[in-house]
Amino acid sequence: MSHMANPLATPDQLYKRRSFSSLPTELQDAIFFSAQCLTQAAGVLLQLPQSATAQANVVLARYWLVEPFMSREFSDVSAAALYLIAKVGPSPRSPRDISNVYAYLLSPSSSFFRPPTSPPPANDPSAYYLSDAAYQTFHNRVLAIEARILYALSFNTHVSLPHSLAITYLQALDFLGARKETVSKRVVEHLNTALLSPQMLYLTSQPNALAVAAIYNAAKDLGAKMPECEWWEVFDVDREELGFLVVGMRSVDGWARKMREDVPGMKEGMVTRRMIEDEMRKRGLQIGNGHGVEEESLDAEAELARKMDEKIAQMEADA
């Protein structure tokens, strides 16, 4: 039993995602990034331990390497991953709580994914009030996706996080002579940012490597002194992987900024399937290109489910 290893993406899985999806890379990345941010925001509002939210982030990333993006609404998948991880862990959350939090985050009342410069949105509780029927359909979707996630991951929900490992390493390095709190905080920030990286760093590297890269970056940020030897080897990380991760972690911020400009929808709240479809249409692209048969039928099936949801919501609104 290892407490330190994770299942990783195979080169084949990574290649397929990039090469055979009908979605252009930057749209894939926009979906990935915004769903990961949404998951973290929901984790905060649900007062879940940071570790649970981070595990949900990783499970979500794994899921999308197995299942096509467009088969389910992104926010639903995020909610289901969070629900599942909370459920099998020490801090379960009720479907009701999950649904309330997601309804709020996706409503215009939440400042989630709106430019920080714009004035805070007016709080309009009716915008995130969920009718019973709407709650039931959301709940149904979450349960269906929960089962789907388990299926896609062969029922393996285990995630080893690098966070506590990183602190252990820092201790071994005497906190690089820096203030313990400062450097630890910086390391954790790098690790959490890495969860958002569309390079899916948690699926390409083991926790020890992520921990070392975060320490390296934190040391650089703070101008702290690192040992003169190739200290990463002590933690079984080679220079090449370290270099990849260091750059990967550092590029998330700038990359996110640029993406907000490239993907216009990202300024208007959480990315949705509708937004992606509109964007594809605008670009003259077709969804379904390059998808396998299964993926297409899944899309059709999901489309039907969505239409029914909308219909019920509409009926509810009319009533």
Binding site: M1, S2, S51, S154, N156, V159, S164
Partner: peptide, 24 residues
């Protein structure tokens, strides 16, 4: 850390302290 972790894991252990050995 292992000891601290074991102490702290409790129910959490089910997910944080396990090996992955899938190869399917």
């Amino acid at each position: 850390e292992r000891q601290a972790r074991e102490a702290q894991t409790q129910a959490n252990v089910a997910r944080t302290a396990q090996p992955r050995d899938e190869d399917e």
